[in-house]
Design a protein around this nucleic acid. Sequence first.
DNA 1: GATTTCCGCTACGAACCGTAGCGTAACTGC
DNA 2: GCAGTTACGCTACGGTTCGTAGCGGAAATC
Lengths: 204, 204
Amino acid sequence: MCPLPSPKRAGRPRSAEADEAILDATRAALAELGWSGLTLGDVAARAGVAKTTLYRRWPGKNELVVDAVAALFEEQLDLPDRGGLEADIQGVVLRFAELISRPETKTALMAVVAEATHDDALRLRIRAAIVDRQKHLVLLGRERARERGELPPDDGGGPERDDLIFDVIAGAVVHRVMVSSEPVDPPWARRLARLLVGGLAGLY
Amino acid sequence: MCPLPSPKRAGRPRSAEADEAILDATRAALAELGWSGLTLGDVAARAGVAKTTLYRRWPGKNELVVDAVAALFEEQLDLPDRGGLEADIQGVVLRFAELISRPETKTALMAVVAEATHDDALRLRIRAAIVDRQKHLVLLGRERARERGELPPDDGGGPERDDLIFDVIAGAVVHRVMVSSEPVDPPWARRLARLLVGGLAGLY
DNA sequence: GATTTCCGCTACGAACCGTAGCGTAACTGC
DNA sequence: GCAGTTACGCTACGGTTCGTAGCGGAAATC
């Protein structure tokens, strides 16, 4: 979130309603105008606050958009147990797609990641607010598969394997939605899950 | 490319050196300043041309950057035959990574894709100049695997399966480089190829 | 009530955008 | 050659957004 003042300070506290209104306005403007069309003056006008109020809380466009998008990822952290590895993968794929297919998310995510190429602080912010939460879901699914005996227990292979399976699942969904501009529907999610579980030989 | 005048026209022809200088300057500025820091005035100054010359050839920042990045994808279209499906996948993964890991490509690709969310013409331009060329490599590898008998011949399954395997490979590479900010080195490519060929059971 | 902090408002210089107009350079067809 | 056509460099401009400064007033703590 925006830099919190120390919890108990003298003086007038910051308006929580203003925060909410600004983030809502940011998402609305993103969906409507896209990244390059979004101006902070417009966001402030939509939110009914002064432009200076906005600058007092966020350093700039990048950080504001990250927070506005991150709020969408805060709620949904659960993954229903579907009883099997392949079904669980299908579930997490559909969950990802649901989040990144919204108009405001679609536009914003790629743009802030692009900006993060030249901004380390922004990259950390994105990682903490969005990426790590997605990753948690993938690792949760793997743990369940191990408990069921569908995968062998942890052999101390280190975090590299976690990174691999996460990049494959999240990357496939993002690429499907953003680059190929095709919907992630249950049939597609099913085929992806089957590919991951059984390999190419099982798919073709 | 930028809209070509009809091959034989009267009058002074457009300078090919200027085109080259502009695209080079665009790539240099991208690597140095990132997407949001790139201004067309700066590009013109670097290229040693007038700003108006730049606007005569490209409608705006988006199209210019797409062409500047696409030029990097034009040369490399071959995929050496490594003798087996798994090795070929590893090869195409490393080829992708080599292209999108350059500083100028990394910054630009995500940004233009984000812009394309609200610009259909830009999306088509990206598809024709970049995505379809990558996809060609993936399908080439699949054809070779079929000829070797590693995959069954085409059963008329339609283009959906092509889309799937392409989104998985390209998406994993992009996500690894852009979001996880980790290098795509031969060991990682090898693990990804093994996952795709043998499935999760073979990986863990 | 005094102090501290936040808010809304106005105003401002700076930067970038995209375009117009002009004189000149380069190339083609007669 | 010469006229016609097109591209180029240059300057200038109005418009928009940026990010900041300064002010008076509102809302909280002590």
